[in-house]
């Protein structure tokens, strides 16, 4: 499969009074065409900032400090703002977490979808409206002609997220970034939205970068998983391998904190402590202060990403690396 987007050594810094804070610190990964990749981690691990960096939507005080984002062979970070605007919403789209606040309250849902179409495609106003209604139908909004004129507050959370998806897919992007697309939705609606995304991904043959903290959602949709911790990638593996042969203690912790149906083996395990703030990173491995399996080496040097199998890498000294 050909590589659609290749992120190399991406570093995004937020300027604070204490100095630059590396929220995304040298992240490298790729997504192939028509592939679904899950990007997983706790709140604050830098996964959303990675997504916004790809869109180049990081605003002050944040800035992309280094790296390359090769998309269809072009480095997005080297494009002019005008060229980048032709990529946004057209070749790469994004669906955000909170559909209510992500839709403009004073415009109709249909108009907000139509606007994206009119912006990137040379079509008449009535044609763009027809296509917008088609998009609403595609994401299975009932009675799309009528719902075209509805305002966001007149729709349910699930319907609003469908509008967001319609907007994002309206120009048939090559890559869809879904940033916690179901976290703000009712559990019953979450499944429907993920199913819809799966189906549309296959139908439109687009790549999806699914950002979430929910490993169940990843298992359902993605074929490969990237786990982030404190601004860097700690493990990367095909989805089955990640669940069956978990290599990194952090990933083990994440998996251990999931409730499983039919298992009544006492309270769920948790990972003690919090994601360290970027100024308080422990020496050596970033996870060492919370890791149940740390030893001396962990505090002295940060492990590299170590190959375990051709597609499985982990940033842990336990994986047989020689430092």
């Amino acid at each position: 499969m050909d590589t659609l987007i290749d992120v190399r050594n991406l570093t995004t810094v937020f300027e604070t009074e204490q100095g630059g804070s590396r929220v995304v610190d040298g992240v490298s990964f790729h997504v192939d065409s028509a592939e679904a990749v899950g990007l997983v981690g706790e709140s604050g691990c830098g996964k959303s900032v990675t997504a916004l960096s790809i869109m180049r939507l990081i605003s002050s005080p944040g800035r992309i400090a280094g790296g390359e984002i090769l998309f269809e062979g072009r480095n997005l970070l080297a494009l002019s703002e005008k060229e980048m605007r032709k990529v946004r919403g057209n070749k790469i789209s994004i669906v955000f977490q909170e559909p209510l606040t992500s839709l403009n309250p004073v415009f109709t849902c249909g108009e907000q979808v139509r606007e994206a179409i009119a912006l990137h495609q040379k079509v008449s106003r009535s044609e763009s409206k027809t296509r917008a209604i088609e998009m609403l139908r595609l994401v299975r909004i009932p009675d799309p002609e009528k719902r075209y004129g509805a305002y966001p507050h007149q729709m349910s959370g699930g319907m609003r997220q469908r509008v967001m998806i319609a907007m994002a897919l309206s120009c048939e992007p090559r890559l869809l970034i879904a940033d916690e697309p179901t976290s703000a939705l009712d559990v019953s609606v979450q499944g429907q939205v993920i199913e819809l995304l799966c189906e549309l991904q296959a139908r439109l043959r687009m790549a999806v970068l699914l950002i979430t903290h929910d490993l169940a959602v990843v298992a359902q949709m993605a074929s490969r998983v990237i786990v982030m911790y404190a601004g860097s990638i700690v493990e990367e593996a095909p989805v089955r391998e990640l669940f069956d042969a978990t290599a990194h203690p952090y990933t083990q912790g994440l998996l251990g904190s999931i409730a499983r149906l039919g298992q009544r083996s006492g309270p769920l395990s948790t990972i003690p402590g919090n994601v360290p703030d970027p100024f308080g990173l422990p020496p050596g491995c970033r996870f060492s202060d919370r890791c149940p399996r740390r030893f001396e080496k962990c505090s002295s040097a940060e492990p590299p990403l170590i190959d375990i199998s051709p597609a499985h890498r982990s940033r842990c000294w336990l994986c047989g690396g020689r430092g």
Binding site: L57, R88, A116, M167
Partner: peptide
């Protein structure tokens, strides 16, 4: 929603 508008291009 301003971020959304920018993300549209």
């Amino acid at each position: 929603y301003i971020r959304t508008a920018r993300a549209k291009g």
